[in-house]
Amino acid sequence: MRRNPKFLNLVLLNGEPEEKLRAARAAGFDQVEIWREDVQASTPQLAKQLQLGFTNVQVLRDFTGAPDRDRQQKREELRQFIQIAQTIGCDTIQAPASTREDCVAARIDEDLRWLASEAARYNMRIMYEPMAWCSVDNTLPLAWERLQRLDQPNIGLVVDLFHICAPGGDASQLDGIPADRIYEVQLCDMAEMPPQDKKPLSEYARHQRLLPGDGIIEVERFVDKLKSAGYSGPVGIEVFNDELKAQPADVAAHKAWQALNRYWP
Score class of each variant (00 low, 15 high):
residue 262 R to H: 13
residue 66 A to N: 09
residue 105 A to L: 04
residue 166 A to T: 05
residue 182 I to H: 06
residue 70 D to H: 13
residue 49 Q to H: 12
residue 164 I to L: 03
residue 229 A to R: 11
residue 237 I to M: 02
residue 80 Q to T: 11
residue 69 R to F: 12
residue 151 D to M: 02
residue 180 D to I: 00
residue 111 D to M: 10
residue 244 L to M: 09
residue 255 K to Y: 00
residue 57 V to Y: 10
residue 88 I to R: 00
residue 102 D to H: 08
residue 74 K to E: 11
residue 23 A to M: 02
residue 29 F to L: 02
residue 56 N to A: 15
residue 62 D to Q: 04
residue 108 I to L: 07
residue 104 V to S: 08
residue 68 D to Y: 05
residue 77 E to C: 00
residue 167 P to D: 13
residue 168 G to L: 06
residue 217 I to L: 10
residue 133 W to S: 11
residue 214 D to Y: 04
residue 149 R to E: 13
residue 113 R to S: 10
residue 37 E to T: 11
residue 186 Q to N: 03
residue 20 K to Q: 14
residue 203 E to H: 12
residue 22 R to V: 08
residue 221 R to E: 15
residue 98 S to C: 11
residue 78 L to K: 09
residue 221 R to M: 08
residue 182 I to S: 06
residue 223 V to P: 04
residue 64 T to L: 06
residue 204 Y to Q: 05
residue 144 W to Y: 15
residue 257 W to M: 00
residue 229 A to F: 06
residue 32 V to F: 07
residue 193 M to P: 01
residue 147 L to I: 12
residue 162 F to H: 05
residue 74 K to P: 03
residue 145 E to A: 15
residue 24 A to K: 01
residue 186 Q to G: 01
residue 109 D to S: 15
residue 190 M to W: 00
residue 238 E to K: 01
residue 127 M to V: 13
residue 214 D to Q: 13
residue 93 I to Y: 10
residue 222 F to C: 05
residue 111 D to G: 10
residue 213 G to I: 04
residue 73 Q to V: 07
residue 167 P to Q: 11
residue 259 A to H: 02
residue 136 V to N: 08
residue 219 V to S: 09
residue 134 C to K: 02
residue 211 L to N: 06
residue 221 R to K: 14
residue 51 Q to W: 02
residue 38 D to N: 14
residue 91 D to F: 00
residue 90 C to T: 09
residue 9 N to W: 07
residue 29 F to K: 02
residue 171 A to D: 15
residue 65 G to W: 10
residue 261 N to G: 00
residue 216 I to D: 10
residue 244 L to G: 01
residue 216 I to E: 12
